[in-house]
């Protein structure tokens, strides 16, 4: 498996740490209630198809990335630094 890091380019999968679904990007407010926290911490969709998840370029630039990929075809559709996302706080 290969991932294209926006900073480092086309790299081997073993340089990256996999951290699961991008669901954890949306951290509920402290008073959001049990359901919201439960959702963020424990509930995951497991799509056959396009999914987004988080990878950390641990043996590279140290960027946390959102990777869009297809779980059926194994295609990597996009890689983006979390910090560069649209609407990400600057």
């Amino acid at each position: 498996m290969r991932l294209t890091c926006p900073l480092c380019g086309d790299r081997d999968r073993r340089e990256f740490y996999y951290s699961g679904s991008e669901d954890t990007l949306t951290r509920p407010a402290p008073d959001a209630g049990d359901a919201a926290w439960d959702d963020m911490l424990y509930l995951r969709t497991n799509p056959a198809g396009v999914t987004k998840d988080l990878w950390y370029h641990e043996s590279g630039c140290g960027s946390w990335l959102v990777v869009t990929r297809n779980t059926v075809t194994h295609e990597i559709l996009a890689t983006e630094r979390v910090a560069d996302r649209k609407g990400a706080p600057k």
């Binding site: 950390y56 641990e58 140290g62 960027s63 946390w64 630094r81 979390v82 706080p89």
Partner: peptide, 14 residues
């Protein structure tokens, strides 16, 4: 260290 990078880049990039 990994978690701190996560907190820094993802949770509180500001």
């Amino acid at each position: 260290f990994r978690n701190l990078e996560y907190a820094r880049q993802v949770l509180w990039p500001d």
